[in-house]
Structure formats: C-alpha cells, structure tokens
Design a protein around this nucleic acid. Sequence first.
DNA 1: AATGAATGAGACTTCATTCAT
DNA 2: TATGAATGAAGTCTCATTCAT
Lengths: 188, 188, 188, 188
Amino acid sequence: MSKHQEKREESKTLLVNTALQLFSRKGYDGTSIRAIAAEAGVSLGLMYNYFESKEALLLEIFNRGNKDIEASFAKAADVPGAEIDQLEQHILQTVHLLKEKRAFWRLLHSLRLQSNVLAQVVEETNAQTAYIEAQIRQNLEAAGIPSPDLEAKLLFATIDGIAHHYLLLEDYPIDGMAALLIQKYKSR
Amino acid sequence: MSKHQEKREESKTLLVNTALQLFSRKGYDGTSIRAIAAEAGVSLGLMYNYFESKEALLLEIFNRGNKDIEASFAKAADVPGAEIDQLEQHILQTVHLLKEKRAFWRLLHSLRLQSNVLAQVVEETNAQTAYIEAQIRQNLEAAGIPSPDLEAKLLFATIDGIAHHYLLLEDYPIDGMAALLIQKYKSR
Amino acid sequence: MSKHQEKREESKTLLVNTALQLFSRKGYDGTSIRAIAAEAGVSLGLMYNYFESKEALLLEIFNRGNKDIEASFAKAADVPGAEIDQLEQHILQTVHLLKEKRAFWRLLHSLRLQSNVLAQVVEETNAQTAYIEAQIRQNLEAAGIPSPDLEAKLLFATIDGIAHHYLLLEDYPIDGMAALLIQKYKSR
Amino acid sequence: MSKHQEKREESKTLLVNTALQLFSRKGYDGTSIRAIAAEAGVSLGLMYNYFESKEALLLEIFNRGNKDIEASFAKAADVPGAEIDQLEQHILQTVHLLKEKRAFWRLLHSLRLQSNVLAQVVEETNAQTAYIEAQIRQNLEAAGIPSPDLEAKLLFATIDGIAHHYLLLEDYPIDGMAALLIQKYKSR
DNA sequence: AATGAATGAGACTTCATTCAT
DNA sequence: TATGAATGAAGTCTCATTCAT
C-alpha cells in the first residue's frame, strides 16, 4: 500500500471512528457533518472526499462493525466442543463484543427501529441476525431440546434484551447476567 | 362539556393518534409537523393551538401511553394468586399491551436510546420500568428463587427482548414465546 | 345612543385602551392580537367585529390620541396673553399631555421612524406637527425674535428631545426641564 | 490575512452593511433575513455562517457603529480649547456623525423605545449616552453656568431632538440648526 | 354580538451538500 | 488532497385573519 493510500485510510478511519462516537452519543439525526469534522479536527469538506454522503459514512460504520462481529464469531465458531459449551461461548463472546464495541452496538440498537434511515444497513444486520439465530437453533437441536425454534428465538431475545439494558443503563451487571443465563442452560 | 371543548378534545386526540402512528413508523426526527398535519387532514398550524411544540406533542403521547399502561397493570395487580401465577399474569398482560398498543411501544423502544430528545419522557418511563422490575423481583423472592435480583433482571430483559423482536419483525410468534417463557417458570 | 351602541362603544374603548398599553410596552410588532384579547378579557375574534385589522386598531388609537391632543391645544390656544406667555403655555401644556397620555406618546415616538407600519398615521401626525411648529413660529415672529423659522424648529426640537428622554427614562426631571426652558425664553 | 479570512470579512461586512440599510429603512422587525440576503445578492443561509441569529447581526451592527462613534468623539476630545469651544466642537461633531452614519443613527433612534428587542444593545448605547451627557455637564460647569446638571440635560435633549428631526425628515436644515444652537451658547 | 377553532403565509434557523481556491 | 465559503431545501414555529357555531 502506498504512502498516499495509507494516509487516505488513516483519514477515513479517523472519520469513521469519530462519527461512530458521535452517532452513538447524540444519535444519527442529532449529529451534523460539521460536528463530526470539528471533533475529528479536519475540514468540513474533507468528508466528501471519502464518503459520498452522510448515509454512506453510516454505511461504512456498519460495514466495519459487521466485519468485526463476523470475525469475532467466526473465530469462536472454530472452537470445538459440546453444543452447550458452544452456547456458553456464544454468550460470552457476545458480552465481550458488547463491551469492546459498546458505541457500535448502541448505534445499532438505536437505529434498528428507525426504518427510515436505513433500508440497506438493516438488511445486512438482519441477515447476520438470522444467521446467529440459526446457529443457536442448531445447537439447541443438537442438544436434544424440544421446540428448538422457539427456544432459539427465546435465547436470542434474552441475549438481545440483556444487551439492550446494558447499552441503556450505567452499571448494568452484564457479567452476572451472562453467568446466570449460562447456568440455566447448563443445568438442564 | 361545551361544544368548543368537545371539538378541542377531538382535534387533540386526532393529532396525538396521527403523530403516534407516524412517529412509530418513521421515527420522531423523521416525521415533520407538516406530515402529521397532512396525514390528519388539518392545517399545518393547528398543532400549535394545542401543543407548545413538537416535543410537547411527544410528551402528550407518552403521558397518554403511560396512563394506559398504568391502568392496565393496576387492574392486573388486583388479581390474587400464587407468585408464579402473578408472573404469568404479568407476561400475558405485557403481551396483551404490546399487541393493543403496538405503535406506542415501537415509539418507546425506538426512543429509549436517543438521550437527546427525551430527558423528561425517559424519566417517567424509567420510573415505571423500575417499578415493574421491583415487582418481578418480589414475586421471585416470594417464590423462593435464589438471587432474585439477577433473576428479576433476567426475566425483565427476556420480556424486553421478546417485545423488541415483536416490534421489529413481522410475524413474530409472540404468543408462542410467551407460552414457552411461562412454562419455564412454572416447571421449576 | 341606544343601549346596544353604548355597549359597542364600551367594548371598542376597552380594546383600544388595552392595545395602547400593550403596543406602548411591547411595541406594535411585539404585541399579538391574541395578547390584546387576553389582556382585555375578551375573545380573540371579537376584535374583528370592531376593527378590520390590526392596523385599523392602531389607526383608531391614533385617531383618538390625535383628537385628545387637538382638544388640549385648542383649549390652550383660546387663552389670550403675550406671545411669550403662549410659548410658556404651550410648553406646560405639552408636559401635561405627556404625563397624562404617556403610553400614547411612547407609541407615537416608537413608531415615528418605522415608515413601514404607518403611511397613513404618520401623515396625520406630521400634519399636526407642522401645525404646532407653525404656531410656535408665529409666536416667535410676533415676539420679534430673529430668524423665527429656525428658532421655531429649534424650540420644537428641544421640546421633542425632552419628551423623548422623558419617555425613554425613568425619573426624568421633566418639570425642571420645562421650567428651565421657559426661563430661557422669558429672559430674552 | 488568508484568502479565506479576507472573503469571510468581506461577506460579513456586506451583510452588516446591507442589513443596516434595510433595518434603517424598514425597521428591524420589518426586515426579513430573506430580504437582507436578496438585497446583498447572497443565499438565504449565508448569514448563519457568520452570525448566530438575526439579533446577533443587529448586535454586530451596533458594535461597529459604537466603535465608530467612540473613535470619532475620542479624536474630538483631544482638541484643546475653551469650554464653549468644546461644546461647539461636540455639536459640530455630532452633526458630522449624523450625516456620515445616517442609517445607523436612524436605526438607533428607531430602536431606542423598543425595549423588547434590545436589552444588551441599549445597555451599551446608554452608557455612551451617559458619558456624553457627563462631558457636557463638565463643560457647562467649567464655563460657570448655573444648574449645570439641568443645563446639560437640556442641551443633550436639544441635540437629540435636532438629530431625531433630521433623521425623520427630508431636507432638514441641520447645519442652520447647529449654527443657531452654537450661537446661543456663545452669546451668553 | 360573541366565541375560539382552524387556516396558511411567512418568519427564523439548520444542515447536508457543492465547488472555487 | 484539503479547505471552508456558499447554497437552498426543508424544518419548526408564529400570528393575523376567517368562519362556523
């Protein structure tokens, strides 16, 4: 990669990260391009050298975020083990990601119900979501649990609910919650 | 009630309901006053005869919504029964409310993470939320379940997660989810 | 005058007086029809039964105010006396009117430079103004003062300046100012 | 100064001057941002790149105007001479300023009685006003004139009245007025 | 005559986006 | 590439005025 491309990549990453922080804190509509540029310490117009529009910037945030998630889960999926252990791994992995990418998850959860802003983004995230749910279902099925479909949905909803509360509240005991949830599945 | 007051109340309710539908579908920021007026079939300025601002309109939506919720749960709380039965009642009641006031819940869930628009509204809803969680904890405690605090948080997160998915997706099997959840608590 | 007409006149006067107070305090542009109606304790629409528009109401205020001024000066003009005494009378009369109709004068002075609001009103007041100045000039001329034209303009400007400061400031020593001004003309 | 800063300053000054002309002609409330932009030949939104609000633009007009006045009087104050000559200088200086900055003075006089729009602006101008009056009083006192306080107020009111009439009327003989006024003080 | 609900033009302001430098 | 001045559509809100009751 040339010096030039490196610098380009650096600026892009700076803008993406700055935008993510602001979108997460103030919301997508509540964050202006000007504010992002100011916070990043670059000029207003620079953003348009890298992104076609505000929405394209958001899209890039999601692309990178999704890539991170995928990578994280892909790594976890390679670990062999009993189905229940895989569920445990999934839960712990989710908690880990939530903590590490809190801003991204906040943004995702805050935009999930705003269909106006995000046809394309929601598509992709829904696909990922469906995939995760399918994996959970397979694990439950393999573990011989009855009505694995509803059970998968239930576990998924529970994880999502915990995530949402963690993102919403300060001092949410997410580790305790994860441990309790895992224990419930182990004790069956 | 005078003719004028009747008309007033009618217009207010029309605006509140129209705004709720649009806020729920397009988001608060994505819905303009003009759009609300057009959808309601009234003039642009009418809203300002009844509400001080767009935010005041939102506040009224929440006031009415919170009143509905309170009334619904107050009625349910009177029903005596074993603690587990009360949990069952609470879950069924929540499902009932979700179905009946889908638009309101969508709005609430979509705004929960937007700290910019909502100091006051969030306050009140959080208070209600905390109260519900406390009730769940009491029930769990009375039923002799260990670590009732985390358990309450877990049940609450699960219900919230189910609600969120119901609000997010078409054709979510919420009744099946509720039944499965109830069964889990009954079988302990 | 019929009972009906009396009541009509009463309502009109109430609106005129209320509007005068508010226009004087908050300015013409800063006072809404709604505010006038509220302050007068009548309905918003009532005003339009008596006045064609907000501007027509202002016009009526000026008509009545001008009538008062005219009457006051007409009475004073009848008093015979030396020319200097007539100047004294004029000054004292003006001070008297300023105190008695402070709100009206404030309104007049605040609108005199706003050509946008008031073609018609300014016309009439200017006519009166010219007439008063002419009278002053005649008196000065009769008293044998040189360049009576400029002198009249000067005295007029002085009186107007005193009036303006009286209307602008709290606790302006207008009586002392009048006495000093009179003394200057007497001592010539 | 950079190219950007130059352009910035140019646009700011263009807007300030255009706004001053329009405010002076049509009044502050009677002049819309759209009208200012159109008259200046720029876009509607440009103003907001330089001023926070319409009121901030007005404030800038006053800041620049006050600076001009201060500079003008500061220069005059340095000239030594008898007290009466200083009064003469003050009067001539005022006339000069009135002619040179007619629009600004018209605006000032038209806003002086509108307490609603102007807390901050009026403050500063009042301070300047008080200072000028105090200087007049000192001169009169030094010249041995009795009741210098009232005399200062009288002279100040006279100058203000002349200014007001000059600003109000076309073809006002302000030079003749100034000469006459000066002569009165010289002949004592 | 009196009421006040309803209207809609127009005001101020924001902000994503363009483009000359 | 980087800058930031400039644009103008669109948003919220105000208010004089109309009109059915």
